[in-house]
Design a protein around this nucleic acid. Structure first.
Lengths: 206, 206
DNA sequence: CTCTGTGAAGAAGTTCACAGCA
DNA sequence: TGCTGTGAACTTCTTCACAGAG
């Protein structure tokens, strides 16, 4: 596997390939870039180019071995070891996310849940008890290095600061706020409203 | 307002500007591209360039009038008229989204809720009763032209086909599946797993 | 012949840098 | 002076097109 500079856009597409490969693993041993393009609605040239950034693992005239490709993509994305994550903010969204199977699938294990509402603290959601925010103190000891923020917007930055202070290096942010963190910390913000807001632009005048 | 070709990336950023402007409207009459850049963590040149695609509405030496800027961005995004949307699939995610205030804020009114589980049909969620999927038939009559798909992945395409057939021209898809639709229909897919999956790539080896 | 891997061309998006207005 | 608006330079990403492997 060679490591030049890899376009961020290519990294963004790897999960798309992975998902399609996993969904369509109907006995097919091999898959061509053309076939994968059909599944993902992407361009075959782009797909081959993407894979080429990581070295050649296809066979001319045949395509890519599906199992091998899956293994490679998982390796590139470092989807292997299960990483412990804390979820902060047990509102509607937080509760819904707790039941979300995607976390496990991509190696996230929700190992702790925090909120500051006394009425929620102690309650069990699934098999995890909600803890007081002050419990964040023990993050390092519990080897939790990822966090999911589902608090209201105005609390998000303060929580992020606390999390970073406790050694968190990856944050999945659902609060509609830009979070200021040190460069070494990776934040991915998911804001449904941002996607909602650009939908009307693409629609005919209602 | 001039209409050349507007980069999709610029459209994607408009909601970011809008959000920052609305959150920070602390009496400030005017805002410079530099100040807005601080709020959004984007580059001032980029911001001015973005606005320039829609014509000049700033004042040299002063900046942009906040109220005017908000009005312009809303106009460009066509965020005005409330549009009726149907939500299909009342699982955990669907239920959580029903309480999501962002829909109203960006002009979406959830006017109908559908599911195929007999146990759910007839139940009221908030003040909307869950209807059988067969009720999709009446979409056109009820002037519903948007839809939110929160069904399991394997049902999503069939539902999308039905929706398109009933005149829907915008779909917000939460199912982890690429949806095949006619070109005139705009689909925005939100797949948390796709974002999750690329987080480990950016983290130090755990 | 089929399909990969990849330089090279092309398109899209970003940043620079500065003329010109307030 | 301060800040906008915008060509031009630059960078990044995508698509093309074809040599070469199977």
């Amino acid at each position: 596997m060679r490591y030049g500079k890899i376009p961020d856009e290519s990294i963004r597409r790897l999960p798309i390939y992975l998902r399609s490969l996993l969904l369509s693993e109907q006995g097919t041993q091999n898959i061509s870039s053309r076939k994968l393009a059909e599944l993902t609605h992407l361009n075959p040239n782009k797909i081959r180019k993407d894979f080429s950034y990581f070295g050649a693992f296809g066979t001319p005239g045949v395509g890519y071995n599906v199992a091998e490709l899956v293994k490679q993509i998982r390796a590139i994305l470092k989807l292997g070891p299960v990483r412990k994550a804390a979820l902060v903010g047990v509102g509607k969204l937080g509760s819904a996310l707790l039941g979300y199977p995607g976390f496990r699938m991509y190696g996230f294990e929700i190992a702790a849940v925090f909120d500051n509402d006394p009425k929620k603290i102690g309650k069990k959601i699934g098999n995890i008890a909600v803890e007081n925010i002050s419990g964040l103190r023990s993050m390092r000891k519990r080897k939790i290095s990822l966090a999911i923020i589902t608090t209201p917007a105005q609390a998000a930055q303060k929580i992020a600061d606390m999390l970073v202070d406790k050694g968190v290096n990856g944050i999945l942010n659902f609060a509609p706020r830009y979070l200021k963190v040190p460069k070494k910390v990776k934040v991915i913000t998911i804001d449904i409203a941002m996607d909602l807001a650009r939908m009307p632009y693409y629609l005919p005048a209602s």
